[in-house]
Amino acid sequence: MVRVKSRYLLCEINVTDRTRLLLLDDRAVAAAVRAAVARMHGDYGAALCSIRFSVKYLNAHTGIVFLRFPKRCYRLLWSALPFITCIETRGQKIPCFLNCLHVGGTIRTCQKFLIRYNTQQLHRMIPKCKNEEEKQEIQKAILNCTLTRGNKVAFEDELESEKDDDDDEEEEEEEEEEEEEEGE
């Protein structure tokens, strides 16, 4: 059985005002990416971008987004991403930029990376804590950052990732995110 190969880009949406991140939804991000590709690479790029491109996951709290591109042309499509300067959603323009953190062949490797990355972010937050309680809460959150909770086997079966297999991640991320919000 030959698998249809894709590349998953784990990107971080950077904005100046973090509260506006909550306005984002995956359709807006997809539209922004499509527009940027069409602007940079014309009809050819737009055609490539229409095949198997999708926004797999969006975390509006941290601004993390998973993009799926066909493996054949992901570099071309990726080269258009730096030219995104704002995302339009609900009639508002949010000035932002995408920063690619990781490129993976499966969604699972991206998830692993993301958990490690978020742990790192929590570590970076510790020196900024104002009081002891916050510090302890972050330390507790760091200890909770693990991938496996008995569903490892199930995950490996889902590598094909045609289904939406992000539910488990979301739960985990959500937990971390709550901590992060408090830390800031």
Binding site: N14, T16, M40, R75, W78, S79, L81, P82, T85, P95, C96, F97, L98, N99, C100, L101, V103
Partner: peptide, 17 residues
């Protein structure tokens, strides 16, 4: 402005252009 910066991996890929 801070919004005109891009990540190092993006720039590496931008070099292809």
């Amino acid at each position: 402005t801070p919004l005109e910066l891009r990540g190092p991996y993006d720039i590496t890929n931008l070099g292809v252009l």
